[in-house]
């Protein structure tokens, strides 16, 4: 099987889906030569740096029979388009009584680690999860990236693809034949019996490293990667916690009203799962601050494998 990078897997998914479906087209503030050469300048357009307008344009084109793929670049820039995302894209299918479909894929990089300070190091998934009407994926491997992005492009709804900055160069095995990864199906990245670690994006890799270390101490960690946040595979998370009795969540976003808080609720609101808990759940998240620039500051703010190990130990000590 070929080994390609996370970034390449995204590009491959995009090109294959644009070949597959002539109603797709691509808008971003720059037009990559690779795409223009393959699909022409009608279907691959460089837009002005006006995210609000081209996000809205995607909505209108989607409602008129097309399947736009939008790349905001960094998630930071999506905030410029918040009216179109929040008031329009998320609600338009519902508020018009379901009379038209709006198949749109929005791609954006997320996460920190690049020393680019507060605006360009964000992971604001939960801001979007809070809206009804948007789906969202968060791949952690090249395989998942390609399969999930293909599913996103084929989906008949607006889907945001959050793509981790820290993982762009990470390589992994990806089949050459066409495949998809369905939205709403978590992946058990490592089986274990003592504690469930629900980890997102880059922290899946940190979590697997933490699990390796803890295995040497006789602690068996199950690593669950939700892969998509909406829909969220609640059943898989509950099943794992029912097995292990313990829950730790690792997320590069801050904890407040975050995906991590939602995942805890998925577990604690379900009486059957709650009854199996041996210890209070624990979140290992970024500190609740804007992301700072200087390396020592940034590294202090983001969690890593050591924080995950500490979090797991805390849960194990609690019961």
């Amino acid at each position: 099987m070929q080994k390609i990078s996370y970034a390449q897997a995204g590009s491959d998914a995009l090109i294959e889906e644009m070949k597959r479906d002539p109603t797709t087209f691509h808008l971003a503030t720059s037009a990559a030569d690779e795409l223009v050469n393959e699909f022409g300048s009608e279907r691959v357009r460089a837009t002005p740096i006006a995210e609000g307008a081209f996000t809205g344009i995607a909505i209108g084109a989607a409602g008129s029979g097309y399947r736009p793929i939008i790349n905001w670049g960094m998630i930071t820039f999506s905030f410029v388009a918040m009216d179109q995302i929040v008031n329009q894209a998320a609600k338009i299918h519902y508020m018009f009584g379901g009379q038209a479909k709006f198949p749109i894929t929005f791609r954006a990089s997320v996460g920190g680690g690049r020393r680019v300070a507060a605006q360009h190091s964000q992971s604001p998934y939960s801001m979007f999860m809070n809206l009804a009407g948007l789906k969202m994926i968060l791949p952690s491997t090249p395989y998942d990236m390609k399969g999930l992005l293909k599913s996103a492009i084929r989906d008949d709804n607006p889907v945001i693809s959050f793509e981790s900055n820290r993982l762009m160069g990470v390589e992994g095995e990806v089949p050459e034949e066409d495949y998809t990864v369905p939205l709403g199906v978590a992946d058990t990245k490592r089986e274990g019996s003592d504690v469930t670690l629900v980890a997102l994006a880059w922290l899946v890799h940190e979590g697997l490293a933490a699990a390796e270390t803890l295995e040497k101490e006789g602690v068996s960690v199950e690593v669950i990667d939700p892969r998509s946040l909406v829909p969220l595979d609640e059943a898989a998370i509950r099943a794992s916690v029912q097995k292990t009795g313990r829950l730790v969540i690792a997320d590069e976003a801050g904890p407040t009203a975050g995906a991590s808080a939602e995942i805890i609720t998925v577990v604690t609101e379900d009486s059957e799962t709650f009854a199996k808990l041996k210890a209070p759940p624990k979140r290992v998240c970024a500190l609740h601050v804007p992301i700072p620039y200087s390396p020592g500051l940034e590294d202090h703010v983001f969690p890593d494998r050591d924080n995950i190990i500490a979090g797991i130990r805390e849960v194990l000590d609690a019961g």
Partner: peptide, 23 residues
């Protein structure tokens, strides 16, 4: 393509319909 409760909110959307018409 709809009435819209946000002033100017519909302008980009219908511009997308114009793009669809051109394509």
């Amino acid at each position: 393509l709809g009435a819209n409760g946000i002033v100017a909110g519909g302008i980009p959307i219908v511009t997308g319909a114009g793009l669809a018409a051109q394509l």
